[in-house]
Design a protein around this nucleic acid. Structure first.
Length: 422
RNA sequence: GUGGGCGUAGCUCAAAGGUAGAGUACUGGACUGUGGCUCCAGGCGUUGCGGGUUCGAUCCCCGUCGCCCACCCCA
């Protein structure tokens, strides 16, 4: 019987996992400086968290959710995204009673039942960021700035920052009507997908990739021309802030999002070095969602970073590297083996990776193993060394060899070697 | 859900109807206490699975599962 991981679900192994760790630690340190605190959220929720939060008619809810009945026949769902659970958490824990803004981030897997392809998986990881309680566009600007700091911090360049505003419940209906009026004139010339979108979500016609549709939508009304006064002011504040802080961006009036809860600001960071799924991070405002979840009306904004996609970009820049032991401890004989484990303890206490040999083997094969592991030093302990209270050390990169008293091992290392962390 | 490509050793790939091979990796040895180089030894792999055609299938056909890419949509 051969077992496979489920379709679209993969193991993450070394050395890749070291890239993941470094991304997460960079996120923690940069987000900390912006005052974002980490929270741990459950990966399963009551199904209605998502149907209510994301929207009944969205693709995610209609066809992509992992939904099961539990043993008491409650409908539960593996989270397909993090914002709805974060809002549930915010309201349930009464966090609106704390000073605004409340700023959080979280990491972990999301689940969507989709056909896998490059950059798309059924279980995929996101770093999610949410900020509650401030309506001013300065918060939007700060989030985008933090996202840029993060992406540059992990070493990514050549990314496109696209921003847009899709208005709110006051002005979006007007825009939608104008759009339908425009497309309705020659609807039968559009592709079948767009004809379907016309009724389900006409905004999506704006980012259809079919060439004919791109031609046909020339001259279509732009969302930013239909913003109400308040939304316009907000959008202008966002643009002014980005400019003032030197964030390079492009306006993309066709940037519409597939989740119902977005209002006003939407943004997306893309790379040309990925496949068709080229968004590495995306987000927007959701000013109505907290009230929808039974909390007080509270403006909020957030974004999500796609881990697999930034890992793919980083691997393109530099392949993942396997960390190497600092010291391999080769021993000859039972007594030396025990002494070897004690010495390993000293090396570790000094902050270095010590790798022992397990069980008897010839010195030759032990050194070969040390070499293949990429160890920097081999320590050799046999009968002679035990008697003398010394060890032989050998630099496997340099070929140098010498003797040192066991009690001086720590200073030998700390004086000559830099500690290495994963 | 739709379309296309691909499934042979841990990995990369041969074998184009006559019942599977190489490189690499791994382990050990040559070198009974000194790695990297070299040489030697070690794999009965249900050729993804199931059926069909054939005297005979890794190869042809059908189905199925899986992977990859694209569409839809999204991080």
């Amino acid at each position: 019987m051969k077992y496979n991981a489920l379709k679209g679900i993969q193991d993450i192994l070394p050395p890749d996992v070291y890239i993941w760790q470094s991304i997460e630690s960079t996120a923690r340190s940069i987000f900390f400086k912006y005052g974002f605190r980490e929270i741990k959220l459950p990966i399963i929720e009551s199904t209605d968290i998502f149907t209510r939060g994301i929207g009944e008619a969205t693709d995610i809810v209609e066809k992509e959710m992992y939904t099961f009945p539990d043993k008491a026949d409650r409908s539960i769902t593996l989270r397909p995204e993090g914002t709805a659970p974060a809002v549930r958490c915010y309201v349930e824990n009464g966090l609106h009673n704390l000073p605004s803004p409340q700023k959080f981030f979280y990491t972990g897997p999301m689940f969507r039942y989709e056909r896998p392809q490059k950059g798309r998986f059924r279980q995929f990881y996101q770093i999610g960021v949410e900020a509650f309680g401030v309506a001013q566009p300065t918060l939007d600007v700060e989030l985008i700035l933090m996202l840029r700091d993060f992406l540059e911090g992990i070493g990514l360049r050549e990314l496109n920052f696209e921003v847009n505003s899709i208005g709110d419940e006051k002005c979006r209906p007007d825009y939608k009507a104008a759009l339908m009026n425009f497309f309705g004139q020659n609807l039968d010339e559009f592709c079948p997908d767009c004809r379907r979108r016309y009724t389900t979500n006409p905004l999506r016609i704006l980012d259809c990739k079919v060439e004919r549709c791109i031609e046909l939508r020339q001259g279509a009304p732009a969302v930013t021309d239909y913003l109400c006064g308040e939304c316009r002011e907000h959008f202008e504040g966002l643009i002014a802030g980005l400019r003032a802080l030197g964030v390079r961006y492009t306006l993309n009036p066709n940037l519409v999002r597939g989740l119902d809860y977005y209002t006003r600001t939407t943004f997306e960071v893309t790379s040309e070095h990925l496949g068709a799924q080229k968004a590495v991070a995306a987000g927007g405002r959701y000013d109505k969602l907290i009230k929808e979840f039974g909390g007080p009306p509270t403006p909020a904004i957030g974004f999500a970073i796609g881990m697999e996609r930034i890992v793919a970009l980083l691997k393109e820049i530099a392949p993942a590297v396997e960390p190497e032991p600092k010291v391999f401890i080769a021993t000859l004989g039972k007594e030396a083996e025990i002494e070897g484990f004690k010495i390993a303890g000293q090396v570790r206490a000094a902050g270095f990776w010590a790798e022992p040999n397990y069980g008897g083997a010839s010195l030759k094969s032990q050194l070969r193993k040390a070499d293949r592991l990429g160890a920097e030093f081999a320590f050799i302990i046999g009968e002679n060394e035990l008697k003398a209270g010394k060890i032989q050390w050998k630099g496997l990169k340099t070929g140098e060899q010498g003797e040192v008293e066991i009690r001086n091992i720590t200073s030998l290392l700390t004086d000559n070697v830099k500690p290495s962390n994963p």
